[in-house]
Lab assay of single mutants.
Amino acid sequence: HSLRVHINGKDFEVHNADEHVIRALEELIRRGADADELKEFLERWKG
């Protein structure tokens, strides 16, 4: 899957995101994670 996440006016393109990554991202958003947390998660995932 390809996923586009809009954080703090920046678009993050997440390519080849598997279900696990997408679910983790949705969980963060549901918990009310702020932009920094989401960005950190995506950067860690992209490795």
Results as ranks from 00 to 15, higher is better:
residue 37 E to G: 05
residue 22 I to V: 10
residue 7 I to Q: 01
residue 42 L to V: 14
residue 30 R to E: 09
residue 36 D to F: 08
residue 8 N to R: 02
residue 5 V to I: 13
residue 29 I to G: 02
residue 16 N to P: 04
residue 11 D to C: 04
residue 39 K to G: 11
residue 20 H to C: 04
residue 3 L to C: 12
residue 41 F to T: 05
residue 4 R to P: 05
residue 23 R to L: 12
residue 4 R to A: 15
residue 14 V to K: 00
residue 19 E to I: 14
residue 42 L to N: 01
residue 16 N to F: 11
residue 42 L to F: 12
residue 46 K to M: 15
residue 10 K to G: 02
residue 15 H to Y: 11
residue 42 L to R: 01
residue 11 D to G: 04
residue 1 H to M: 06
residue 8 N to I: 02
residue 14 V to L: 10
residue 21 V to I: 13
residue 8 N to A: 08
residue 26 E to L: 14
residue 29 I to L: 13
residue 36 D to V: 09
residue 30 R to P: 00
residue 39 K to M: 15
residue 20 H to N: 13
residue 10 K to I: 13
residue 13 E to F: 12
residue 7 I to P: 00
residue 11 D to A: 11
residue 38 L to E: 00
residue 22 I to S: 02
residue 30 R to G: 10
residue 44 R to A: 14
residue 4 R to Y: 11
residue 6 H to T: 14
residue 32 G to M: 04
residue 29 I to V: 10
residue 34 D to Q: 11
residue 25 L to T: 01
residue 2 S to N: 11
residue 42 L to P: 00
residue 27 E to W: 06
residue 36 D to M: 09
residue 25 L to I: 11
residue 4 R to M: 14
residue 30 R to L: 14
residue 30 R to N: 13
residue 44 R to H: 15
residue 43 E to Q: 08
residue 3 L to G: 03
residue 33 A to G: 07
residue 41 F to N: 03
residue 35 A to R: 05
residue 47 G to N: 13
residue 18 D to G: 07
residue 5 V to G: 01
residue 37 E to H: 08
residue 18 D to F: 04
residue 27 E to K: 07
residue 30 R to M: 13
residue 34 D to M: 07
residue 33 A to S: 06
residue 34 D to K: 07
residue 23 R to E: 09
residue 22 I to L: 09
residue 43 E to Y: 05
residue 1 H to T: 15
residue 30 R to I: 10
residue 40 E to H: 08
residue 8 N to W: 04
residue 47 G to A: 09
residue 22 I to Y: 06
residue 31 R to F: 10
residue 35 A to N: 09
residue 44 R to Y: 12
residue 12 F to P: 00
residue 37 E to I: 08
residue 36 D to R: 07
residue 28 L to A: 06
residue 27 E to M: 08
residue 23 R to T: 09
residue 24 A to Q: 10
residue 21 V to M: 12
residue 46 K to L: 15
residue 11 D to N: 07
residue 3 L to V: 14
residue 5 V to Y: 03
residue 23 R to F: 10
residue 33 A to H: 05
residue 21 V to D: 05
residue 5 V to M: 02
residue 38 L to M: 09
residue 28 L to Y: 05
residue 25 L to M: 06
residue 2 S to F: 13
residue 14 V to F: 12
residue 25 L to V: 07
residue 4 R to W: 11
residue 7 I to R: 01
residue 39 K to L: 15
residue 37 E to F: 07
residue 34 D to N: 12
residue 23 R to P: 03
residue 32 G to H: 06
residue 31 R to L: 14
residue 21 V to P: 01
residue 45 W to P: 02
residue 21 V to Y: 03
residue 26 E to V: 12
residue 36 D to Y: 10
residue 15 H to F: 10
residue 13 E to Y: 14
residue 17 A to W: 04
residue 33 A to P: 04
residue 28 L to G: 01
residue 31 R to S: 12
residue 16 N to Q: 06
residue 36 D to T: 10
residue 43 E to R: 09
residue 16 N to H: 11
residue 30 R to S: 13
residue 4 R to H: 15
residue 40 E to L: 11
residue 33 A to Y: 08
residue 15 H to P: 06
residue 24 A to N: 07
residue 44 R to E: 12
residue 45 W to M: 05
residue 1 H to Y: 03
residue 12 F to Y: 15
residue 47 G to M: 05
residue 35 A to W: 14
residue 23 R to N: 11
residue 9 G to W: 01
residue 33 A to L: 06
residue 12 F to K: 00
residue 41 F to E: 09
residue 5 V to F: 11
residue 6 H to C: 04
residue 25 L to Q: 00
residue 12 F to N: 00
residue 22 I to Q: 03
residue 22 I to T: 04
residue 36 D to E: 12
residue 32 G to T: 02
residue 6 H to W: 07
residue 22 I to P: 00
residue 24 A to W: 09
residue 14 V to Q: 01
residue 17 A to V: 14
residue 38 L to D: 00
residue 43 E to S: 07
residue 39 K to F: 15
residue 15 H to C: 04
residue 35 A to Y: 15
residue 15 H to Q: 08
residue 25 L to N: 00
residue 28 L to W: 06
residue 44 R to N: 15
residue 17 A to Q: 07
residue 39 K to N: 14
residue 32 G to D: 05
residue 18 D to A: 10
residue 40 E to T: 12
residue 34 D to F: 05
residue 3 L to K: 01
residue 21 V to W: 05
residue 22 I to R: 05
residue 18 D to C: 09
residue 24 A to S: 08
residue 25 L to A: 02
residue 42 L to K: 01
residue 41 F to M: 09
residue 11 D to S: 09
residue 9 G to L: 01
residue 37 E to T: 08
residue 36 D to S: 11
residue 4 R to C: 09
residue 23 R to G: 07
residue 26 E to R: 10
residue 10 K to R: 12
residue 32 G to K: 05
residue 37 E to L: 07
residue 15 H to R: 09
residue 28 L to S: 01
residue 47 G to Y: 08
residue 7 I to D: 00
residue 19 E to F: 05
residue 30 R to A: 14
residue 45 W to I: 09
residue 25 L to K: 00
residue 18 D to W: 03
residue 14 V to A: 03
residue 31 R to P: 01
residue 14 V to R: 00
residue 30 R to C: 07
residue 37 E to Q: 13
residue 1 H to W: 02
residue 40 E to K: 13
residue 20 H to E: 08
residue 29 I to D: 02
residue 19 E to D: 09
residue 7 I to L: 08
residue 31 R to Y: 10
residue 27 E to N: 09
residue 8 N to E: 07
residue 40 E to R: 13
residue 46 K to F: 15
residue 39 K to I: 15
residue 24 A to C: 05
residue 30 R to V: 12
residue 5 V to P: 01
residue 36 D to A: 11
residue 42 L to A: 04
residue 16 N to A: 08
residue 9 G to A: 01
residue 5 V to C: 03
residue 13 E to C: 11
residue 41 F to P: 00
residue 16 N to K: 05
residue 30 R to F: 13
residue 3 L to Q: 04
residue 24 A to K: 11
residue 41 F to I: 07
residue 9 G to V: 01
residue 25 L to H: 01
residue 44 R to I: 13
residue 12 F to V: 06
residue 1 H to E: 14
residue 2 S to D: 07
residue 32 G to P: 03
residue 13 E to L: 10
residue 8 N to D: 12
residue 32 G to F: 03
residue 3 L to T: 05
residue 16 N to G: 08
residue 15 H to N: 12
residue 3 L to S: 02
residue 46 K to R: 04
residue 3 L to E: 04
residue 29 I to S: 03
residue 36 D to P: 06
residue 8 N to P: 01
residue 41 F to V: 08
residue 12 F to R: 00
residue 2 S to C: 08
residue 27 E to D: 13
residue 23 R to H: 13
residue 28 L to M: 13
residue 11 D to E: 14
residue 38 L to I: 13
residue 17 A to P: 08
residue 30 R to K: 14
residue 28 L to K: 02
residue 41 F to W: 10
residue 41 F to K: 02
residue 20 H to V: 12
residue 21 V to H: 04
residue 16 N to S: 09
residue 38 L to F: 11
residue 40 E to V: 12
residue 18 D to R: 04
residue 9 G to I: 01
residue 33 A to R: 03
residue 22 I to C: 02
residue 5 V to D: 02
residue 18 D to K: 06
residue 14 V to D: 00
residue 39 K to A: 15
residue 46 K to T: 15
residue 6 H to N: 14
residue 21 V to F: 12
residue 31 R to W: 09
residue 40 E to M: 07
residue 43 E to D: 14
residue 15 H to M: 08
residue 45 W to F: 11
residue 10 K to H: 09
residue 24 A to G: 10
residue 45 W to R: 01
residue 12 F to H: 03
residue 29 I to P: 00
